[in-house]
Nucleic acid binder design. Structure first.
Lengths: 334, 334
DNA sequence: TTGATTTAGTAAAACGTTTTAGCTTTTACG
DNA sequence: CGTAAAAGCTAAAACGTTTTACTAAATCAA
């Protein structure tokens, strides 16, 4: 049983395909189709359950009402929450989301961009990695809206929405210092993206601001695609060998692993050492004791991204690129 | 700058569009195109970076290499993990995923199905809700592969992949009973889906099997879309009013809320009462003490789903529907 | 040498829309 | 009444592919 086409509707209504198309697309008035015909055709469409073939529509119009979302890993709760918020908001405006995870692989990211391109997505939301600057530049040259989020690519002049990681991490470290901590560690990842680098810089700057000298050994960089067991080993070494009295974890999954290590080592959080995580996670609040964390305003980030996209899609000419930095919040728990 | 089309390639190679198409689609040999021409065209394609327009391709062939994924809520870690696994596996076979969350709304689910239909997705992976049986039946009549997962719709004769919730919950309750627990509560949701119903049935059956009479007041049904504050109030009432000595939470988010309540009430887990969660969550292992849980084999579920789909897509005629039940594992932690 | 078969390729239809350019018929106005 | 403008509608091109049905030349078998 083939699906109905606009032709079937036109036939049934005894009008031309053109007329039906105008009516479907709300151009009936403007094209001066009579009310009687409009009513008749609409009734037939409603009764028959006809839905226009979006593929044919896309082929003709060149746009798809689909927004491509490229993230590092959809199963990371930071991304899946953002994805959900973006999806909701996009959906309300008639856009669908098609997503994929890059796993921080340049090739996969490039493939994804190509794939999205050949699918004619209307806009791109990308949490980028180094190495795809050129590909992104090409998208922009083709006048497709591109919004980077979470991480920026400094060489590129794009729209960007993200939190103020430098300030947030600076604040976190200062709060440690106010508590009298001296041996403050940072556990971060080795991926070379701006948001991660900023977190490290906030850390170093805060130490410097308070006259604490930076100790190389207190900065632990975990290789990105490493299995958790190895990560745990590395962390164990850090917490055992040094008299760390505070630690900031630069991502939520690192914090999760770190908390496991501390538990195993029998370290008492808040007594033996203070802990702050990054990107909230249900486990943090629930943990005994609760874990303080730097919270990114997900709702606001998602809202801003969608607003930028819709504005650009609605406008005929290219809008100026905007770099929107939203403050992150340090949530202190005890 | 318009994108290249097959026509441009044909022009450049001085061959027909048909020939280029055959070469792109690997039919060159079969259509007896000479090696020289094949080489030439392939070189031009590679040099120019031409990528076929998937939309045009879809319009012509009627399929899209896209698989539609409909879940309850992509930000729930159970779904986002499954989504990630499915995406990975599908990607390797050249399929992309387009997803959406239903939020357990029948209308949204129906809209999504229609949307996917008009986008000509090749197959549907659905974690369904009651009320869309008919819509799913229509998909199946149109000969599109449909795989339900996590929850089944018993009236429907479809492919289904899910865990054995009845047995898992039965086991969990038995483990409580072996520990000598008598006042065993079940906190579940009020959505009427098979997987949730089964969990309650496993609970009741286990009680009955061990001669414990079922106490209506120990079965708490939380309305699905309720805000967490209200959920917490309801749970507080349960844990305060009754001398509950064990509780099984039927979903991970209920367990998270429940653990917050228990923390607030100062109940000692394992001493005052025993707890088992459902669907693992990082917070469970990390919790002090660690929380036991019923774990669904995500990897295996994702693998099975994709295998069913690919088999069906590869086959000319309709394969028999399969109902695959995978055992869930009770992970006891202390 | 002839007819059949194979090799090497192509023209054109089709997929289901949107949109441009146009054609009648009606209305309005002086 | 005559003509210009508006109302009401449509034919056909275009979007970029795949695929069917075809042709022309080369090869083969007898």
């Amino acid at each position: 049983m083939k699906a109905l086409s606009i032709k079937d509707i036109a036939l049934k209504a005894k009008v031309s395909i053109t007329t039906v198309s105008f009516i479907i697309n709300g151009k009936a008035k403007e094209k001066s189709i009579s009310d009687a015909v409009i009513k008749k055709v609409q009734k037939i469409i409603a009764d028959s359950g006809y839905k226009p073939n979006q593929i044919a529509r896309s082929l003709r119009t060149g746009n798809s009402n689909i927004i491509g979302l490229i993230v590092e890993d959809i199963s990371n709760s930071f991304f899946s929450r953002i994805a959900r918020l973006i999806e909701d908001k996009a959906y309300k405006k008639g856009y669908k989301i098609i997503y994929s995870s890059t796993e921080n692989s340049i090739e996969k990211a490039q493939e994804l961009i190509n794939m999205f391109k050949s699918r004619k997505v209307d806009a791109y939301i990308i949490s980028p990695i180094r190495g795809i600057e050129e590909d992104i530049q090409i998208l922009m040259n083709e006048n497709k809206p591109v919004i980077l989020f979470d991480r920026n690519l400094p060489e590129l002049n794009t729209n960007y929405v993200g939190a103020n990681h430098f300030v947030a991490s600076h604040q976190a470290i200062e709060s440690f210092i106010r508590q009298g901590k001296k041996q403050i560690a940072l556990v971060t990842t080795d991926i070379n993206v701006q948001q991660i680098v900023e977190r490290a810089e906030g850390y170093k700057k805060a130490l410097a601001d308070h006259g604490i000298s930076f100790d190389e050994e207190l900065l632990l960089k975990i290789p990105f695609n490493q299995v958790e067991a190895d990560t745990i080993k590395q962390m164990k070494r850090l917490f055992q060998s040094k008299k760390v009295d505070a630690v900031l974890f630069a991502t939520n999954y690192l914090a999760i692993s770190g908390l496991k290590v501390l538990k195993e080592l029998g370290k008492k959080i808040n007594q033996d050492l203070a802990v702050i995580g990054y990107d909230d996670h249900e486990a943090f609040e629930l943990h005994t004791p609760s874990i303080s964390t730097i919270q990114q305003p997900l709702e606001e980030i998602a809202e801003t991204i969608i607003k930028l996209i819709l504005n650009q899609l609605a406008s005929k000419n290219k809008l100026p690129d905007q770099q929107i930095i939203i403050p992150a919040k340090l949530i202190l728990r005890h």
